[in-house]
Simulated assay, not measured.
Amino acid sequence: MQIGALARRAGVSPRALRYYEEKGLLTPGRTSGGYRDYTDEHVETVRRIRILLAAGLNTDMVSEMLPCMVNDGEFLAPGCEDLIAEFERERRRIDTQIAELHDVRSALTGIISAGRAFADR
């Protein structure tokens, strides 16, 4: 199938597919005329890429983890045991970012409150 058909089936833009290809996440075949040629397997690959990106992973991490991911019927799961530790590390990193954002939000709330109090004088 051509890139437009894959984009429709996978629910992404052709631009996203070209980006995934550029990052080495997706490797289409080529027709004799040089056009990209995707298979049904690419639809599943794009679905997996989207899940991993939605989980907060960057494309370098997705590239590294994608070959070891399996579908357990309900979720995408790491098929290689060492990936569990990688996902746990990533979750801790996100938890740290959430805590930092909470602190930033609290500081901003204080500034807003002080500004309102100053304006009310």
Score class of each variant (00 low, 15 high):
residue 58 N to R: 14
residue 64 E to T: 00
residue 61 M to W: 08
residue 68 C to K: 12
residue 33 G to E: 02
residue 14 P to G: 13
residue 43 V to K: 08
residue 58 N to E: 12
residue 97 Q to I: 08
residue 11 G to C: 07
residue 31 T to D: 05
residue 103 D to S: 02
residue 91 R to P: 00
residue 73 G to N: 04
residue 43 V to Y: 07
residue 106 S to K: 12
residue 3 I to E: 05
residue 25 L to V: 11
residue 65 M to R: 10
residue 35 Y to E: 07
residue 69 M to T: 11
residue 41 E to R: 15
residue 120 D to H: 09
residue 98 I to V: 15
residue 117 A to V: 12
residue 95 D to F: 09
residue 21 E to V: 02
residue 11 G to Y: 07
residue 15 R to D: 09
residue 82 D to I: 10
residue 89 R to K: 15
residue 17 L to H: 03
residue 39 T to Y: 05
residue 32 S to E: 09
residue 14 P to F: 11
residue 45 T to S: 09
residue 59 T to A: 15
residue 105 R to V: 00
residue 44 E to L: 14
residue 54 A to M: 07
residue 17 L to K: 09
residue 65 M to W: 06
residue 4 G to T: 14
residue 80 C to G: 00
residue 43 V to R: 07
residue 33 G to L: 11
residue 46 V to Q: 09
residue 65 M to S: 03
residue 119 A to M: 11
residue 26 L to V: 11
residue 37 D to G: 01
residue 5 A to K: 15
residue 87 F to I: 03
residue 17 L to W: 04
residue 71 N to A: 13
residue 8 R to T: 13
residue 9 R to M: 14
residue 99 A to V: 03
residue 94 I to L: 13
residue 75 F to M: 04
residue 56 G to R: 00
residue 10 A to Y: 05
residue 39 T to V: 13
residue 41 E to D: 12
residue 93 R to V: 01
residue 76 L to C: 04
residue 86 E to I: 00
residue 41 E to L: 13
residue 105 R to N: 01
residue 30 R to L: 05
residue 6 L to G: 04
residue 28 P to W: 00
residue 112 I to K: 03
residue 81 E to C: 00
residue 91 R to A: 02
residue 29 G to N: 05
residue 96 T to R: 04
residue 30 R to W: 01
residue 110 G to V: 08
residue 80 C to H: 12
residue 112 I to G: 01
residue 35 Y to L: 11
residue 95 D to R: 14
residue 51 I to S: 10
residue 90 E to A: 05
residue 63 S to T: 07
residue 29 G to L: 04
residue 69 M to F: 08
residue 113 S to Y: 06
residue 113 S to W: 06
residue 90 E to K: 04
residue 51 I to A: 14
residue 22 E to N: 06
residue 33 G to W: 10
residue 3 I to W: 07
residue 112 I to Q: 07
residue 121 R to D: 06
residue 82 D to K: 15
residue 3 I to A: 10
residue 112 I to D: 06
residue 86 E to D: 00
residue 41 E to A: 15
residue 49 I to G: 08
residue 61 M to F: 04
residue 85 A to T: 12
residue 79 G to L: 11
residue 79 G to M: 09
residue 18 R to H: 03
residue 66 L to M: 09
residue 25 L to M: 06
